[in-house]
């Protein structure tokens, strides 16, 4: 769903052909979201069918014509509407780690606590990488779109932090309830 609007958003700034669109997409949100060319083109086809996008052909030497995509009036309206509507869907609670919790050993909290710690360490390392990226980004502020990139990284950091907090809570609650059982 959001891929559609991400592409509309990119085209709203500038008319692009498929390849350019992919690299712009990667640059802006690639950190969290990777798409292959197939996905790009199928989305574009769908958008064209809905009359949100249109394309011009540009002739090239010795190569097939390039399709330059641009946003239509209807496309612009729908993008603006989407931009001004808050997101209703909360992050998915379906989480792989959660499934592991469901199947943990109720008698012996040891393994799951170990797992929690490993998971936290993993998150921490991930956060550290993000932070390092952010710091180096900060050092080159002239880089285009560094703000949105930074904000995205912040989002990642905050989510990871939330996960760590949640994991810490899990550990202490598990210890509190299962600790007294054993």
């Amino acid at each position: 769903m959001s891929v559609k609007f991400a592409m509309l958003g990119i085209l709203a700034e500038k008319n692009l052909h498929g390849y350019e669109l992919k690299s712009s997409f990667d640059e802006k949100v690639g950190e969290f979201w990777s798409l292959n060319y197939g996905q790009i083109y199928s989305t574009l086809d769908r958008l064209e069918k809905e009359d949100l996008v249109t394309h011009d052909r540009q002739a090239q030497d010795r190569r097939p014509d390039k399709k330059i995509y641009s946003i239509t009036g209807k496309g612009r309206t729908e993008l603006e509407e989407w931009l001004s509507t808050p997101v209703h869907k909360v992050r998915a609670l379906r989480d792989e780690f959660f499934i592991k919790l469901v199947f943990m050993d109720r008698k012996d909290p040891g393994p799951i606590l170990d797992l929690i710690e490993k998971q936290k360490a993993h998150y921490l390392k991930q956060m550290n990488r993000l932070t390092n990226r952010k710091v180096s980004l900060k050092k080159r502020p002239e880089h285009a779109d560094s703000l949105t990139a930074e904000l995205l990284m912040d989002a990642g950091l905050f989510h990871a932090e939330a996960d760590i907090k949640w994991l810490t809570l899990c550990a202490s609650k598990i210890k509190a309830t299962m600790g007294e059982n054993t």
Partner: peptide, 9 residues
């Protein structure tokens, strides 16, 4: 208390 802070270290 902040893992975001710790991530700088």
């Amino acid at each position: 208390h902040d893992s975001k802070a710790a991530a700088y270290g």
